[in-house]
């Protein structure tokens, strides 16, 4: 039987004058890759923020492995098994790649850290840059370092907010392939917020479409395409956004 790893119940977030997330409900099964699609400002990042305990919901709850993230005691236990990448957050630029990974490895209490860092750097082709300052790297290299940091704790749940934004097609494809292999090899759960429809079609088992803080449709990419009578997911996205 499929095991629910993330459960979002009646989640709502009201900022001063706007309702960012409006009564959201969904469950994510362990070992799946779920896409979260929607136009800018539809509430994707706020939803991810609440799943990470960074934003306090106005009402409702997020349960990770059956534990409410809002409970301070649960929060640290949950975060030990999660990680997050976003193009809007960076690692300290003045620290070397190796130093950054050492810092976060210790923060997550990783055993055999030296070996773990070596393996990650080898897998992500970072060994040549390990003594370089992170700020001196190209955006593609920085992206791989952020990915290494996000995988340092071998997370059960990985939240990816536009992981390939601003990357050239080659590096973007490299990252997508790596995520695909990582998820299939280790049975990890991934929530992917993206504006890249081909990326979502390629990686995700299921897609949730958000608009105005609500999930307005969900299903596999192919089921959404046929349900809306369109050629591909991008056309489905445009139809839903413009309706």
């Amino acid at each position: 039987m499929s095991e629910t790893i993330i459960e979002v119940n009646n989640l709502k977030k009201q900022f001063k004058n706007s309702l960012a997330v409006n009564n959201l409900n969904f469950k994510i099964t362990k070992g799946t890759i779920i896409g979260l699609l929607g136009p800018n400002g539809c509430g994707k990042t706020t939803t991810i923020g609440m799943m990470l305990g960074l934003i306090k919901p106005t009402s409702g709850a997020v349960f990770i492995n059956g534990q409410n993230i809002e409970n301070e005691k649960n929060r640290t236990n949950i975060l030990e098994k999660m990680n997050f990448i976003s193009p809007y957050i960076e690692l300290p630029k003045k620290l070397t790649v190796e130093e950054n990974l050492k810092v976060y490895g210790r923060m997550y209490g990783i055993n055999n850290l030296k070996e773990k860092i070596f393996n990650l750097m080898k897998e992500l082709n970072l060994l040549d840059f390990k003594k370089r300052k992170t700020g001196e790297l190209s955006s593609g290299q920085k992206n791989r370092v952020s990915l290494a940091k996000a995988l340092i704790n071998d997370p059960e749940i990985l939240l990816l907010d536009e992981p390939t934004a601003s990357l050239d097609p080659d590096v973007g494809d490299y990252v997508r392939t790596y995520i695909e292999n990582f998820a299939s090899r280790k049975g990890k759960t991934i929530l992917l917020a993206s504006h890249n429809m081909s990326e979502v079609e390629r990686l995700c088992h299921e897609v949730m479409m958000m608009k105005n803080g609500k999930i307005i449709d969900k299903g596999t990419s192919s089921s959404l395409v046929s349900k809306h009578g369109r050629k591909n997911l991008e056309e489905v996205f445009l139809k839903i956004v413009r309706e």
């Binding site: 236990n77 975060l79 957050i89 630029k93 003045k94 923060m107 209490g109």
Partner: peptide
């Protein structure tokens, strides 16, 4: 402030730090 300037702030608060 170093955490804010380096945009590392969010990384700290998603780590299991109390």
């Amino acid at each position: 402030l170093e955490e804010i300037w380096s945009r590392n702030f969010t990384n700290l608060f998603i780590a299991p730090l109390k």
